[in-house]
């Protein structure tokens, strides 16, 4: 259960959407550090996060610092990706502790149940949307 989200009255970076263009960053959980790597089915304890910018089509691979956390890997990983202004997360599954957290941050969750999908497959799927 997630209790008591506290917000400053005037957030400095309230979204990054402007009238002309929607810049969206997507986090994808990955088993490795290349675009051939497969989707990591776990969110909080995935090996890598791919931060994909749908506008510039750039990919950044970040090693997950929370992979071996004793507790709270989920919320810590939300912090890792949310601090990079991600608006959507693609993973295999999302734990109960982080769903309300992501909802309150306005970050969309997409669960892909196919562990054979590679990062480039998923990026391609994003392009078709």
């Amino acid at each position: 259960m997630f209790i008591g989200m506290i917000r400053r009255p005037k957030p400095r970076n309230a979204g990054r959407i402007n009238k002309f263009n929607i810049i969206m960053k997507v986090a994808i959980t990955s088993t490795g550090s290349t675009s051939d790597s497969k989707l990591d089915p776990r969110f909080g304890r995935c090996s890598y996060f791919v931060i994909y910018d749908t506008d510039t089509r750039e990919m950044e691979f970040i090693r997950n610092p929370n992979k071996d956390a004793t507790e709270g890997a989920g919320p810590a990983s939300v912090q890792t990706v949310a601090s990079r202004n991600v608006k959507k997360i693609i993973s295999g599954e999302f734990g109960t502790k982080i769903r309300s957290l992501l909802d309150s941050l306005g970050i969309e969750m997409t669960a892909i149940r196919d562990p054979e999908k590679s990062i480039s497959d998923i990026v391609e799927m994003l392009g078709q949307q």
Partner: peptide, 8 residues
């Protein structure tokens, strides 16, 4: 940056 802090 978003001014968010909370206790889980």
């Amino acid at each position: 940056p978003s001014g968010i802090i909370s206790v889980i």
